[in-house]
Design a protein around this nucleic acid. Structure first.
Lengths: 348, 348
DNA sequence: CCGGGGAAGTGAAGCGCTTCATATTACCCA
DNA sequence: TGGGTAATATGAAGCGCTTCACTTCCCCGG
């Protein structure tokens, strides 16, 4: 190439290979391979190989290793939608945690489309990851079953209905919901809107059922607002909310199953001219960073992202490395009361 | 394994290989390889190969392909610190954009430690990525030079001082700063604090110089607050701020070179009992999502993350695929005035 | 003194693909 | 009708590593 374009074929100094190290110490490549992994060989050999490798600046070629061994020291991270703040942070934290454990993270983002989730999965699988961490968009999809048979899978946020062999880190929604309902009930709210993601293929709707149960328990009535999982934009939410809040006997609080939803509701409320929490109380359900800064501070349920990440990564790597069984870990909630909730406005 | 642990060696149905497809159509593997990539072969052959591949459910093994060809269809994304909200979103967006272009993203996060940045780079390089997108922690490090000779590199946020052959997507700080200073000057601020990341090895300090110039231009005095790049926590910021705001003739506004810094300042101000913007105006410099929701809405400079992502990914892939030259793209700023800035308090 | 057993080291066969050099065929124009 | 050329197809050599099966060698007990 004369014009522009550096051509990267030149100037690359061709890194030393296993063979080079083997030649340097006068041993067979096989021996070096074992020695470098500390799997076999005398202490002496091991030391000499180490020394030679260091001296030559040898770095293993993970691609060749992956091809030969069938495992890649890479973990796929599939996220339902990074437009959701909590998931975005989760993904970043997972990648960081994996890296700390010496694995690379191969991240993909289904961006709210269940069909994309499926397609991405196929592609990720081709990269032969050692395991998969997924915040599933559609936990009821059939694909999980086969996948979980092929490699260790840990789901975050939902159990994979069709894949009993997969691990999971789930939230104790029953307790979380109870705390939220109690809090709102104490403040005198009698009718609330519940904003939740609509799921593509949900035979049963545990969240809905829980909401109904809590409403009954606290003597509240509920307006369900279903919206796309990635909806954090105010426009859609404004529409939803305008409808929900239209009637005379309108809800006085909104309980959002995602902090991103709560932010959208906050924006929508602003547009609709509603004071928070004067006219409308808002509760989130995740405690993202910055929840404390949103408006008067978002009241929300904290699940401890660190705990989630540790549980998920720990469990997955235990399965990958030591063939430990996968299980379901339940994370406990903590209600964090901030400024977006207040007494229900008196009915006029 | 009797107890627990599924062993994933079994039940994996062994995917079809190139050879299988070749057998199916009665052609040589080489022919199939070319055909599948549409590089050679008659239209007829091509169609038959396609059909057979589909019928068998053949999926290429990217690892084998990478080993044989020396390129991986993977792009490494190295991020200075995903604790910074803007970078976190940036990383997510980059991954999404890459995926849309059919590349996998291999993400790594230096987490604020320049030495980790170097180590990660070595590991990433071993994975033989086709290119590298990096939001550098230390744009002055020497390592970039060699790296940029070996593969296409695009830096985001800073030009890599030592690597003239690398591409870059940078911000027009001169204009951004000017807008911020004008805005604050108009509001009557005469002394401001500027919160900026301290850089590990910075021979010259362009940001500092710009700040000085603008201050002179607007007749302001400036207190520099340097803090670790990943500092978004309120504790540290409170300390910094307490010091900076201690004197009698204290700054009446804080200009933060990162929205995350601004959020930390907002928190710190709350702790110190300062009203925003009554006692202290705060300006960010990135416009992360939700900046509008922080307190009374963060005044900040918007760089359009979408534009940054497009420029970076577009440029990099053009270099990877078509050997196009890399260049420096400058992104223009837009000041977004929201609620965290107001008139300077009258001196008492 | 001999045989058995275990540790250390090795040869060679892949893993599944790309790609170069070569062979084959077909086609066109002189 | 024949030689040249372009278009297709193919054989085979890797890419750099892992791992199985095997040889050597040494040590110890019988």
């Amino acid at each position: 190439m004369a014009v522009g374009g550096a051509t990267y074929a030149h100037g690359v100094p061709k890194r030393p290979t296993l063979q080079d190290v083997a030649d340097a110490v006068g041993l067979a490549p096989a021996t070096v391979s074992y020695a470098l992994r500390g799997e076999r060989g005398s202490a002496d050999t091991l030391a000499r190989v180490q020394a030679a490798a260091t001296a030559l600046g040898y770095q293993i070629n993970p691609i060749a290793a992956a091809l030969a061994s069938g495992r890649s020291r890479t973990v796929a991270v599939l996220c339902g939608s990074t437009r959701d703040l909590w998931q975005q942070s989760l993904t970043a934290d997972l990648a960081r945690a994996l890296l700390a454990e010496g694995r690379h993270a191969l991240v993909a983002d289904a961006d709210g489309h269940p069909e994309r989730e499926e397609a991405l999965l196929a592609k990720l699988r081709d990269q032969r990851p050692d395991g998969l961490l997924v915040a599933p968009l559609d936990p009821f999809a059939a694909q999980w079953e086969e996948l979980a048979r092929q490699l260790p899978v840990v789901a975050i946020g939902d159990r994979l209905a069709e894949a009993p062999s997969a691990g999971a880190v789930v939230f104790d929604n029953a307790r979380g919901f109870a705390q939220v309902f109690d809090h709102l009930a104490e403040l005198g709210h009698r009718r609330i809107a519940v904003v939740l993601p609509e799921r593509p293929s949900t035979p049963d709707r545990p969240a809905e059922r829980l909401v109904a149960r809590e409403a009954r328990r606290c003597g509240m009535s509920v307006d369900l607002v279903r919206t796309a999982p990635a909806t954090a934009d105010a426009d859609t939410m404004t529409d939803h909310l305008a409808t929900a809040l239209g009637g005379r006997d309108r809800p006085t609080a909104a309980f959002c199953l995602t902090d991103s939803f709560a932010f959208a509701v906050l924006r929508a409320a602003r547009r609709l001219g509603l004071e928070v929490p004067g006219d409308l109380s808002v509760v989130g359900f995740e405690d993202v960073e910055f929840a404390d800064l949103a408006g008067p501070g978002l009241t929300t349920v904290d699940w401890g992202r660190g705990a989630v990440v540790d549980a998920a990564v720990g469990q997955l790597l235990a399965a990958v490395d030591d063939d430990e069984p996968l299980r379901t870990v339940t994370i406990s909630p903590r209600l964090v009361v901030r400024g977006t909730t207040g007494p229900a406005p008196s009915r006029s």
